[in-house]
Simulated assay, not measured.
Amino acid sequence: MTEHRHGEGEVMGRFGRVIGLVAAGALAGGALVAGGVALADGLPWSGGEHVSYVKERRTIPAGYLSTNVVCPQGQQAVGGGYAHLGEHDRERPVIAEVNAPSNTSGKPDEVNNAWSFLFMNDKEETTPIDVYVICAPIDG
């Protein structure tokens, strides 16, 4: 049986590579954080204190539910989503076919002041769901 021993230089070489990878990861992470801060500074509103969200509860019947959540007057939708509160059925899940920004005017060039959803419930039972919109002041 042959014994293999790592020389001190080989161990230090591996240790140096690990330290190099950790340092590279830290630099990349720092760049992503700084990039996120720069992106947040470039968003079309000023100051996070004016960002708000609206949460409403809906009940999805058997079949379809088309609904939206509207921002307060003077604000635009910058995000949205939903939280499924009912029991999950892998065989017949509730499906969100639409989860997107929209506007209540129906005019394509208007500011998106709402978040729209279209849910499909293939079960016999109704299912509760919370729907959200994240809103920020309209520039201008």
Rank of each mutant, 00 (worst) to 15 (best):
N103I: 01
V11G: 00
E110M: 10
E10K: 07
E125I: 03
V22Q: 04
I95R: 12
G42D: 12
G35Q: 03
H4Q: 09
D109N: 14
D122S: 08
H88M: 08
V98A: 14
V98Q: 15
G9M: 07
G16H: 08
D130W: 08
N121W: 03
V98M: 14
L27E: 04
T59K: 03
E56L: 11
M1Q: 08
V11Q: 07
V69G: 10
P137A: 12
S102G: 12
H84Q: 15
F119D: 01
I134G: 01
M120A: 09
S66R: 12
L65C: 10
H50D: 13
E97T: 12
E125D: 14
L118K: 14
G16F: 06
G25W: 03
P101V: 09
A24M: 12
E3D: 12
G47F: 02
T2H: 09
G86M: 10
M12N: 09
V78W: 06
G16C: 00
H4M: 06
G35P: 00
V69W: 09
V98P: 06
A77K: 05
L43A: 05
V51N: 02
G79L: 10
H4E: 09
V94K: 02
E56G: 00
D41F: 00
N112T: 02
I134N: 04
S116I: 07
G63W: 12
G29Q: 08
R5S: 02
R57W: 00
G81Q: 07
D89Q: 05
A34W: 11
T67C: 11
